[in-house]
Design a protein around this nucleic acid. Structure first.
Lengths: 123, 123
DNA sequence: TTAAGTGCAAACGGTTTGCATGGAT
DNA sequence: ATCCATGCAAACCGTTTGCACTTAA
């Protein structure tokens, strides 16, 4: 664990759901010399170690967070709003997909896309 | 409908699940002068018209296809393999998310992520 | 004669690479 | 003496923008 790696890990935990760019800016507040390349490399490393994870919200950069929380993300593709819900909502689907296709669903890696309540009303 | 637009639409239908780059190369086989900028602009237009749609498979460029088929995509994040299954698999989840969060799920816009049967076995 | 569609080049956001330096073991 | 982590610059992929040119209403 180098100082840079600790700083990146701390930033991921403090920000939650931040992009690599945001994480880098946070780290640079205390240590401006840290390069974004190191942030990318460290995020990959921490993810291999299983202490952080990333989620894709459709477009744009992935979001990194510390592992323990297992949320399902619902991303509105109109207003970009993200709702986090209990990953247990997917239990039924998980079981079905495993039974029918042998597919092991990872609820955290990709957000589900759709319209949030507010945007759905204005359709 | 300009000639370029017809060519792009044809290419989307012939290729199915192709990236903008692949669509562009296909169009250029018959009409090399067509620029990739035009492909992007045309894909946006055709999507607004509802005749094509795109799906995000986690990483990389989005995939475009002609609209009628309403498939749910299951993307393996280990081997990149994509399984297409009946979007009806999501009916239960759709209902739950609408009831609990007012969220209108769009099953086609983002692929679900996980491990395919083969990769799950080798975990 | 105006508006819309196109091609081209340049910029863009996000990410990865090559390479030389620097510290730890 | 070696190895790995870092910083920096440059390349990269996918996409968007500005602008001048053409074409069709």
């Amino acid at each position: 664990m180098t100082p840079q790696r600790q700083l990146v890990l701390d930033a991921v935990g403090e920000l939650e759901h931040a992009t690599p760019e945001q994480i880098c800016r946070r780290v640079q507040r205390s240590t401006p010399s840290v390069n974004i390349t190191t942030v990318y490399r460290t995020l990959d490393l921490l993810e291999d170690l299983g202490v952080v994870q990333h989620t894709h919200l459709g477009h744009g950069a992935p979001r990194y967070s510390t592992r323990p929380q297992e949320y399902l993300r619902l991303a509105c593709h109109r207003c970009e709003h993200v709702i986090e819900v209990d990953a247990g909502e997917l239990d039924g689907l998980s079981t079905t997909l495993r039974a029918h296709y042998g597919f092991e669903l990872d609820p955290t890696h990709v957000a589900l896309s759709g319209l949030c309540a507010a945007c759905a009303r204005n359709e």
